[in-house]
């Protein structure tokens, strides 16, 4: 029940969806379409998992007056009030959009733009030419870096042309190889999941 049941669920759903693709029977196609559509609902539940987890974590912080519990209060107020607003007045309401536009959006964009700063530091400290592979990577990286923007063309007309050739030819060949290899791997892994040979998605829980 605890291990064989889930394996059976993965097998049955996987086989029906596959059958819907490979066989031309309307009943099977309808079943397959239905199962795939249900996945939207289950995945929607999964979206709340992170929120519930953080809610528990910060709730414990507040109740136990742990270190930095005041920040947990800020999280709680933001989480609960925005969730209630969204459910009660819908995401299309002016209030919901106001908060999204003026608090959430700027914070999220700024948070993600951090990566550039760390990448800049890495350019100075970490990217070292220690062997021929690193040299090839850096030279092609430099050409593509310049070739993608106007300054490359301003230095020499050849730079954007070489950059485009790198992306179109050797890069395309390498990506094609990776794609073929990766796709074969995905197919094999998917078959293993459906047949119940791959059960890592059940790991992490003893009971």
């Amino acid at each position: 029940m605890k291990r064989q049941g889930p394996v059976l669920v993965a097998f049955v759903t996987g086989v029906i969806v596959l059958a819907g693709y490979f066989f031309n029977s309307q009943t099977v196609v309808d079943m397959s379409t239905q199962i795939v559509r249900w996945q939207n609902i289950v995945a929607a539940f999964a979206l709340a998992l992170g929120g519930v987890n953080m809610f528990r974590l910060h709730g414990k912080n507040i109740i136990g007056r742990k270190k930095n519990w005041v920040y947990s209060c800020i999280f709680m107020v933001a989480f609960v009030s925005y969730f209630v607003l969204g459910v009660a007045k819908s995401t299309t309401s002016a209030e919901y959009q106001y908060i999204w536009q003026n608090l959430y959006q700027p914070a999220a964009s700024t948070m993600y733009s951090f990566t550039l700063f760390y990448m800049t530091s890495a350019c100075w400290r970490a990217f070292r030419i220690r062997n021929w592979q690193a040299a090839v990577l850096m030279v092609t990286g430099a050409v593509v870096l310049l070739g993608q923007v106007g300054i490359g063309a301003a230095i020499s007309e050849a730079i954007p042309a070489v950059s485009a050739w790198i992306i179109d030819t050797p890069n395309a060949a390498a990506i094609r190889a990776i794609t073929i290899g990766g796709s074969l791997g995905m197919v094999v892994m998917s078959i293993r999941v459906i047949l119940g040979l791959e059960r890592t998605y059940m790991a992490g829980r003893q009971d």
Partner: peptide, 20 residues
């Protein structure tokens, strides 16, 4: 944004060369 992209790329490239 494109001019800023240009200068940004150049700056990061110079950092890489300088670092090496």
């Amino acid at each position: 944004s494109m001019d800023a992209q240009s200068i940004g790329h150049l700056y990061l490239l110079l950092l890489m060369i300088g670092g090496n």
